[in-house]
């Protein structure tokens, strides 16, 4: 499993450009992942590869096509120093695991990586880096395999009062 390393502020327009938003199939979307900004990604990405980035990964548009394009490419985990809010939710909801790690600076493009979700760490370059687990309630969504699977078993939801 190799690392695809990206920098800070990778926006969802870069992950999947606006002209492909009429596509909804993850496999089709993945053919255009990072088109124009990193063309070799779609050609060379392999099932199980891991995207590693700096801070604010997935900023910008709310397009869920972004996590779907990564999932379609076989990427199941993104490790970043921080995530933009909407992308983070979209990833959890669709079954792409967003892991936060302060130590992504030392990870290089092409490094071999192993992700141990249960253990809360990744192994890369012979180094073990801790990753923050998905918080509280969102863990239930992750464990269910995404929000669709989580919602299927629900008849109604309990809401808090906003009064």
């Amino acid at each position: 499993m190799r690392v695809w390393k990206f920098g800070d502020d990778i926006d969802t327009d870069a992950i999947i450009p606006g002209r492909f938003l009429t596509i909804y199939d993850p496999a089709e979307l993945s053919k255009h992942a990072f088109e124009g900004t990193r063309d070799e990604f779609a050609k060379e990405v392999r099932d199980g590869d891991v995207v590693v980035a700096g801070s604010n990964f997935g900023c910008g548009s709310s397009r869920e096509h972004a996590p779907l394009a990564l999932l379609g490419a076989g990427v199941k985990v993104v490790v970043a120093k921080s995530f933009a809010r909407i992308f983070y939710r979209n990833a959890v909801n669709t079954g792409l695991l967003p892991l936060i790690s302060a130590g992504t600076d030392s990870i290089r493009d092409g490094d071999a990586v192993t992700v141990n979700i249960a253990g809360g760490y990744i192994d890369v370059n012979g180094e073990r880096l801790p990753v923050e687990p998905v918080p509280g309630f969102m863990k239930e969504i992750v464990d269910a395999g995404g929000l669709v699977a989580y919602a299927k078993d629900l008849d109604e939801v309990k809401t808090c009062s906003t009064e």
Binding site: E64, I86, R89, N90, N93, L147, V157, T159
Partner: peptide, 18 residues
């Protein structure tokens, strides 16, 4: 606030969101 489509699917069904 802006949300993704899966969040919205949930809202369409339940009228609520986390």
């Amino acid at each position: 606030t802006g949300i993704g489509s899966t969040d919205m699917g949930f809202v369409l069904k339940f009228g609520a969101l986390y």
